[in-house]
């Protein structure tokens, strides 16, 4: 037998298995569909969670730019002294952006947003301090890096205290990190579930076709030949349920898009709900097909050994 003959027969064996296994799924459409849906739901849960989280990180990364420091000056410091200090701070290379809020501006803002305007009008003195808003240079990213600057600012004689807005962003990021970790764990568990579901489906199929398998063995089939269509069945189960999961995720995002857009508009944000990227979609399909093949393989190697002609 020449090499091209060998390759040809190998290809024809695989083509045979590929299509005959797809045909088997189509022959029992209802039960195949049920299995596909169960697997698809198991795949869809972590996929949707992943999407929501990656959208969440998108939001929090937009917030990253708001790592501003509010430096509250002492009550006794006048607007002019505050101005002088802010000009001095402009020379600091750890600081990139400075805005000064005078006592009067602060009071006006407070009146506007607090709803206590009439009460405030009765005050004889302005209790609010001068506030300097400043942005640390972009080289300072973490709290640890910003802390020295914060300490330095608080030691200034004019300063009362300095507050970093970034802290709550970091708390949000920590929460996102926990959610990511939890999703990872959930994904692993559900991957195991998919493996078991596909394995069990293939096991039932193996048992239903026990007679056929034994006859095929008697006629001289290798285990590899008998296993092949089952591996392809696993492959189809995995791939098709991956596709179904993709569609279901798309449907979920479609349903969520409008309410999230509304919410985002209310916050005057230009937030856009992101769907799976091409490479994420490909990863989903690859993982699902791979799980299918693995599930089928495990079951086949275990059961085919036990099915011998008597």
């Amino acid at each position: 037998m020449s090499l091209s003959d060998t390759a040809g027969s190998w290809l024809s064996l695989h083509r045979h298995a590929l299509f005959s296994s797809l045909g088997k799924l189509a022959k029992a459409p209802f039960s195949s569909l049920l299995t596909l849906l169960v697997i698809a739901i198991a795949l869809m849960l972590p996929t949707t969670l992943h999407l929501l989280i990656s959208n969440g990180t998108q939001v929090s990364s937009q917030l990253d730019s708001s790592n501003q420091i509010s430096l509250f000056l002492k009550q006794s410091v006048s607007n002019a002294a505050g101005e002088a200090l802010s000009n001095k701070l402009k020379l600091d290379r750890d600081i990139v952006n400075i805005t000064l809020t005078t006592k009067e501006e602060a009071l006006k803002e407070f009146q506007q947003y607090s709803g206590f305007s009439s009460a405030i009008e009765t005050l004889e003195i302005n209790p609010l301090p001068v506030v300097i808003q400043l942005t640390p240079s972009s080289e300072l990213k973490s709290i640890e890096q910003i802390q020295p600057l914060l300490d330095r600012l608080e030691k200034l004689s004019e300063a009362d205290f300095a507050q970093l807005d970034m802290q709550w962003v970091q708390r949000l990021q920590a929460i996102v990190e926990i959610a990511e970790r939890a999703t990872m764990l959930l994904a692993l568990l559900l991957a195991l579930a998919v493996l078991l579901i596909i394995g069990n489906t293939i096991r039932l199929e193996l048992q239903n076709r026990r007679d056929e398998i034994i006859i095929t063995k008697l006629v001289g089939a290798t285990d590899a030949f008998i296993r092949r269509p089952f591996l392809y069945s696993g492959f189809w189960y995995g791939l098709l349920s991956g596709l179904t999961a993709w569609l279901m995720t798309a449907g979920t995002i479609f349903l969520l898009e409008r309410p999230i857009q509304n919410l985002s508009n209310l916050y005057e944000s230009n937030f856009q709900l992101q769907f799976l990227t091409a490479s994420e979609s490909l990863t989903l399909l690859t993982i699902s097909a791979f799980l299918g093949i693995c599930g089928a393989w495990t079951v086949c190697s275990h059961h085919l050994k036990k099915m011998q002609p008597e």
Binding site: S9, S12, L13, H16, I215, G220, A221
Partner: peptide, 24 residues
Amino acid sequence: HRLLHDRTVFDNVALPLIIEGLNY
């Protein structure tokens, strides 16, 4: 006989050749 009952006569007889990977 040990035939495959869900396959045609042709497919039954072809089985040993399919196993060997003979072309159609």
